[in-house]
């Protein structure tokens, strides 16, 4: 089962190493991991998407991560109301004749073309991982030359 776990950590060198070290040692499978600054300069947010066998395992992950001195707070946000986004850049084979059609395929996904070459274009799409998976499936027929995905980042929704 897929779990989204976020960790606020002290922005020191080596902390990411500690986090991935803990996951690796306990043989947890990381699907994606993303790191970046937060509203506080001294704190980074790490968002980890994991594939675990059970909720029990997910709880073990959060406990083990929480134990690290430089980890401030760990939350499994999967079942909480949350926002999550991932960004993908996809370079597609697109001879001039196919481009108009591509635009119509992109439309429902609100994807954008951000670079145009002679034989290829680069498309940017953001959304949940599921949406990106769906988009990738749709455009696969064009021939994907290159793809880069950021992994998920996210946090809890504002309380209503």
């Amino acid at each position: 089962m897929k779990r989204i776990i976020t960790a606020c950590v002290n922005n020191y060198s080596g902390v990411l190493n500690r986090v991935t070290g803990v996951l690796n040692r306990r043989q947890f499978n990381i699907e994606s991991i993303s790191v970046g600054p937060t509203e506080a300069t001294s704190i980074s947010r790490i968002t980890i998407v994991l594939n675990v066998a059970s909720l029990f395992e997910a709880e073990q992950v959060t406990k083990q991560l929480n134990k690290q001195i430089d980890v401030i707070k760990v939350s499994d946000i999967t079942d909480e109301p949350h926002v999550e986004r991932e960004l993908a850049l996809i370079k597609l084979n697109t001879p001039a004749a196919t481009r108009a059609e591509l635009l119509s395929v992109m439309e429902p996904f609100r994807a954008n073309i951000i670079d145009v070459g002679a034989k290829t274009v680069v498309v940017q799409v953001t959304g949940t991982s599921e949406k990106i998976d769906a988009f990738v499936d749709v455009v696969r027929a064009y021939g994907i030359k290159q793809m880069a995905r950021t992994g998920v980042t996210g946090f809890l929704r504002s309380s209503k």
Binding site: G14, N17, G21, R25, I69, D70
Partner: peptide, 14 residues
Amino acid sequence: VMGLTMPITKNNYQ
């Protein structure tokens, strides 16, 4: 040393 001792310390500093 930081890399070597990371998994076998409660914490480490350089």
